[in-house]
Write a protein that binds this DNA or RNA. Structure first.
Lengths: 268, 268
DNA sequence: CGACCACCTTGATATAGATCAAGCCAGCAG
DNA sequence: CTGCTGGCTTGATCTATATCAAGGTGGTCG
């Protein structure tokens, strides 16, 4: 009776599977991300079912997880690292529609074929579900289905926010919004780490944004060119609103100013 | 246990309610849109519950249905007409994130406050659900919850397509894509009408797009100005790809060409 | 150690689409 | 019928961002 819920993904079978843990019923119970989105609110039985229905994978940077147009057979929950989701035009123009950070799912598609591509940005850990198993979980655990509905609703709201950015914000506003997103992503990751590391009371990291992706990815996410992204970041640095840190981190010196820029209330 | 699923809307109580039909248990059973998305797959009992949990409203053009930032108390299913959904920046810049045509829902929000605004484009009929009733239906009728999950997934895929348009398509490609969307919307409406009007075998309307919204709305949907929209439509008319009809309809003379333009494979 | 490569930055110039400015057209009120 | 209003079209000019072009930097590998 229920319409088939399609999920998507393409991945060579077994790639990255941790053989020793495949059948570990405790895996989800012990997971860092247990309380994140999809897996929250489940009892021990539910978590065991989840562990049995999924496999944990570790994927190196640049791995194609989902290819547009391929049969949608897998569904993923990200537990570590960052995945980029994108759509492309025949001539190669590309739009990154979002980055999936730990706690986020990916792989739902409205048809039996994926409507987007997905590729790892850095080293990524995911739990992979095959579609039949996912369907079983949705039917057997109403909390799980409700979690997924809430998660998809969240993503839709994010997409609407991103449409506002793409259609109506200037380059500077786009970059400011992006940096704030990445600040939030890093803060969430820190919070999760702290919650599972009871000794260290989490030294309040001073406004650091995690930016594991390249300028090309940022440009394709913001609807700009890499040159404009680079120039805009340089301008923010000159204005002492941000500062460079090591490799893939940017320090936000003036978060309030950045927030004003992002919402179009200031032009620096 | 299930996280509260928030829905949104602001509407003066009772506005547009058809008093005589409020309690009509047959209403959903007899509805044109019964098989559309949310309400499909329900048995008589389910349809009766749906009818009891919702009210049918008729809203004139330009009615504010949902206002960004107001408590999210209502959820709607559109049965007639077109609603625009949008987000705005403090200085008034606006992005229309989508048009809800018959068969589409609106009103879900990730928090207890709506994250977007919604306004009728033309005369609109909707079924309105208050949040507690919606929650009840989702819990009592798994088919209904599954339908909603599928519908939200569809909207997310549309949003991703629209991000590709906003970030990476030219003005001409944007307008071509929009006209094809409106062609599809009109074809779906015709099909629904035909299915409920068994006498008339639905004279295959020759590629007509329904465009009830103004140039301002189109511009705010495509991330352009009204002048650019107007110029681009004029150019397509000059190229004999489209032709004007009465007020709010546009005839598509060369759908294949339009499709090529929309996907970036031709520049005319 | 050197040189290659991927990625990033900065500068000069070009252009798609925005902005500014008129005027047109249809429907409605008087 | 006349004039007003809201929505649309068209033209002239401007500008934010793209494009073209030239280095710079840091990590890796022979």
């Amino acid at each position: 009776m229920a319409p088939p819920l399609q999920t998507s993904a393409f991945l060579s079978p077994g790639l990255g599977v941790h053989p020793s843990r495949q059948a570990d019923l405790q895996r989800c119970l012990l997971c860092d991300q247990r309380d994140a989105n999809l897996c929250s609110g489940l009892d021990k039985q539910g978590l065991a079912a989840l562990a049995q229905s999924s496999k944990r994978l570790v994927l190196p940077p640049g791995t194609t997880m989902v290819e547009e147009g391929e049969p949608a057979v897998s569904f993923f929950n990200v537990t570590q690292g960052t995945v980029k989701l994108f759509k492309s035009l025949p001539d190669g123009r590309r739009q990154i529609t979002g980055f999936a950070d730990p706690g986020q799912f990916l792989g739902l598609s409205p048809s039996d074929v994926y409507s987007f591509g997905a590729e790892t940005v850095d080293t990524v850990q995911v739990c992979r579900f095959q579609r039949p198993q996912l369907e079983g979980l949705l039917s057997d655990f109403p909390v799980f289905e409700r979690n997924l509905l809430v998660a998809v609703t969240d993503r839709l709201a994010e997409a609407q926010e991103q449409m506002l950015l793409l259609g109506r914000k200037t380059a500077k506003e786009k970059v400011a919004s992006f940096l704030l997103d990445r600040l939030q992503a890093h803060e969430r990751a820190q919070a999760t780490a702290a919650a599972h590391d009871h000794d260290e009371p989490a030294a309040t990291t001073e406004h650091v944004a995690s930016v594991p992706m390249t300028r090309i990815d940022i440009a394709d996410y913001l609807g700009l060119t890499i040159e404009t992204v680079s120039r805009t970041i340089s301008a923010l640095r000159r204005e002492k609103i941000i500062a460079n840190m090591e490799n893939h981190y940017i320090q936000i010196l003036a978060p309030a100013t950045l927030r004003q820029i992002a919402s179009g209330q200031q032009n620096g």
